[in-house]
Design a protein around this nucleic acid. Structure first.
Lengths: 149, 149
DNA sequence: ATGTTTGCAAATAGTTTGCATCCAG
DNA sequence: CTGGATGCAAACTATTTGCAAACAT
């Protein structure tokens, strides 16, 4: 069930991926990456910004925003597909699925081998090149379920 | 495979749903609804606006936008989950899945009974109330595949 | 040294709001 | 008639861009 790897492993990969893509290891980048992978709430750029600011007070929102986009570009993060009008990021690039609470907009990660084995329809497989697939559940989370009584 | 129903059927339902929700049948609303269900490209509010404008030249973007949101509210449309920074709407509320082209951002509807039978993990089913689920495929569509040669 | 990265500030784009007028029921 | 709907314009929010100064390598 646990897919989140140790921080050190992630950092080692991070350094390597940056080097491979000619990205310099600035303190901002390192801190942004740490905040991203330590969060499991699929944060917005602004949320990451406010957290990084605690460690690096003069960081700009702009840097955080561009860095996150860069991370997506080189495969260190993913943009979460959603219906809201702001972007959310996911530091977990390993295969998993999402549950969306329609009340509090929380996104819960779902790891399940059986869900990974999605049968790609034959028609699709011939016409289209499928690179990735994920299941999205909509519903009401445990916290909101409790609060509605 | 064909899930799009006849316009008349949809319109009858539309009138009924509007009445049920105390929405008046204005020419704008009717036209916005028609454009929505006649499009299979998951349009933005702006795209719908430009099409409605051809029939009702003095319609405002604002009306289109608010009307689409209202449609979502009463279940006549859905907001498409995506990674782009603008909203896209879906006039097909029946169960289906989506294929996203990562190159041209086209969204292709997928109707497949076998995909509908997603097994909700037991852990989830106990903690969370699942209302809906859909599969999202990412990849390269037939048109873009052709063009890349 | 030098090419990348950063912080700032201004621009952009999509969306939302307030309000007076208009119109469907 | 009358409350809901519309069109307009301004406000708001998230995001993006240009550029000079600062920094990693």
């Amino acid at each position: 069930m646990k897919k989140r790897r140790a921080l050190e492993t992630n950092l080692a990969e991070f350094y390597h991926t940056c080097k491979k893509n000619n990205l310099k290891l600035t303190p901002q980048r390192v801190q942004i990456f740490k905040e991203l992978i330590e969060s499991n709430e699929h944060p917005t750029a602004n949320k990451i910004y406010r957290r990084v600011k605690k460690k690096i007070p003069n960081v700009s929102f702009d840097t955080v925003n561009r860095t996150l986009l860069k991370f997506v570009e080189i495969g260190l993060a993913k943009i979460v597909e959603g219906k809201e009008d702001f972007r959310r990021y996911d530091g977990v690039v390993a295969r998993h699925h999402h549950f969306y609470c329609i009340k509090c907009h929380r996104i819960i990660d779902i790891y399940d081998q059986r869900l990974d084995d999605i049968n790609i329809p034959k028609v699709l497989d011939e016409r289209l090149v499928v690179i990735d697939s994920k299941i999205i559940f909509d519903g009401i989370c445990d916290k909101c379920k409790k609060n509605s009584f």
